[in-house]
Design a protein around this nucleic acid. Structure first.
Lengths: 156, 156
DNA sequence: CCATAACCGACCGCTTCAGTAGGATTTAAT
DNA sequence: ATTAAATCCTACTGAAGCGGTCGGTTATGG
C-alpha cells in the first residue's frame, strides 16, 4: 500500500471542510459523524494539518476547523505530505532543499545506484498527480457545496 | 515511504542478474556480496521473483539464478508487484480483472468517494512509471554489461 | 457555571519489516 | 562415495508503524 489511512481520512476531512460555505468553522465531531470516522483518531490527523498551516482552529463552544486558504489554492501534495510525512518512494531517497534527489547508496564513488532511475520516475509520477490536484477539484468531485448536497453539520 | 526495501533489494538483484551475459546462472551469494545485502534475506526475495516467473533457478553446485526473459521484455511493474504485492495507493482500492478501479467506501449509493479521483491519478502515475521502465534500461543505467564494468562474480 | 470543543500525551493490540537460524535437498567436482 | 556449493523451506525475533482509545487540560459561548 502506497499510503495509509492517515492520508485517506485526512483528505476526506479536508474535503469536508472544503464543502463548508463561508468561513464558519466545522467541529470535528460533525465530520467524524458524517464520514463515519473515529473522532479521537481524527484529532491526531487534524493536528498535523494544523501544524502544517493547512487548517485554522477556533477553540471553545461552537468552535471547529476551517481551511486556512481557499480550496483552489490547496494542492494535495502538501496535504498528503502533512499527513504521511515526506513523500519518497524509498528509504534511501532524500530530496535536498534545491530539489535534487539523493540516494544514500551512492557512497561508492559516483557510480549511480541501479534503482535511482526507477525511483526518480515513480517519485515524479506521484508528485505530479498530487501537486496537480487541488482540494477544490475533490470538493467538486464529491458533490459540490451546499447546492446539491448539504455540508456536514446541517440537519439530517 | 511508498515502497520497502523488498522492492529496493529485489530490483537490485534483478539488475545484477541482468548484467550477467549469456545464460550462466549467478549465485545468490555472489549478488549478496557485490550488493552488500544479507544473503538469507535475499533468499526470501528471490523466492517471490521465482514464484512470479521472473527468474529461473538451477540447483546444486555452480547453480544460481537467471532471468526468465530478456531484460528488455521485463517491465518493472511486474517486478515490484512480485516483491511488494499488489500496487495500490490505498487499502480500499481494488482493481478488477477488467482493469476497473473500485473503492470499498462507495457502499452508500452511487455517490463517488471524495478521494477516488485523487488515488486514481496517483495510481496512474505510479503504474505508468513502473510499466514504462524496463529492466534493460536499469542495467544500462547501472553501467551496462561486461564491457564497462564486470558482472558480479568476476574476479575482483 | 456548564456544555462544547480544541488540545495533548500516554498507552495498546496488531501487523509488517528486516533479518536470522537451522535445516533439507539437489548437484558438480574430487 | 564424499564433500562442497548451492537452492529451497519453515519458523522465529526485535523493532517500528498503524489504527485507535483514553483521560485529562484548556478555552469559550450561552
Amino acid at each position: 500500500m502506497l499510503f495509509s489511512t492517515k492520508a485517506e481520512y485526512g483528505v476526506r476531512l479536508m474535503v469536508a471542510l472544503g464543502r463548508q460555505p463561508g468561513s464558519k468553522p466545522v467541529s470535528l465531531s460533525a465530520v467524524a459523524e458524517a464520514e463515519r470516522l473515529p473522532l479521537s483518531y481524527l484529532e491526531h490527523l487534524v493536528a498535523r494539518l494544523r501544524r502544517a498551516g493547512l487548517v485554522t482552529s477556533t477553540r471553545g463552544a461552537h468552535g471547529g476547523y476551517s481551511l486556512a486558504k481557499p480550496a483552489d489554492e490547496i494542492t494535495l501534495d502538501t496535504v498528503v505530505e502533512a499527513l504521511e510525512g515526506q513523500i519518497a518512494p524509498m528509504e534511501c531517497f532524500h530530496e535536498t532543499p534545491e530539489g535534487k534527489v539523493l540516494c544514500s547508496h551512492e557512497s561508492d564513488g559516483d557510480h549511480a545506484c541501479a534503482t535511482k532511475l526507477l525511483w526518480t520516475r515513480v517519485q515524479g509520477g506521484v508528485t505530479k498527480a498530487l501537486a496537480g490536484t487541488t482540494l477544490a477539484e475533490l470538493v467538486e468531485f464529491a458533490g459540490g457545496t451546499a447546492e446539491k448536497a448539504p455540508p456536514v453539520g446541517s440537519a439530517a
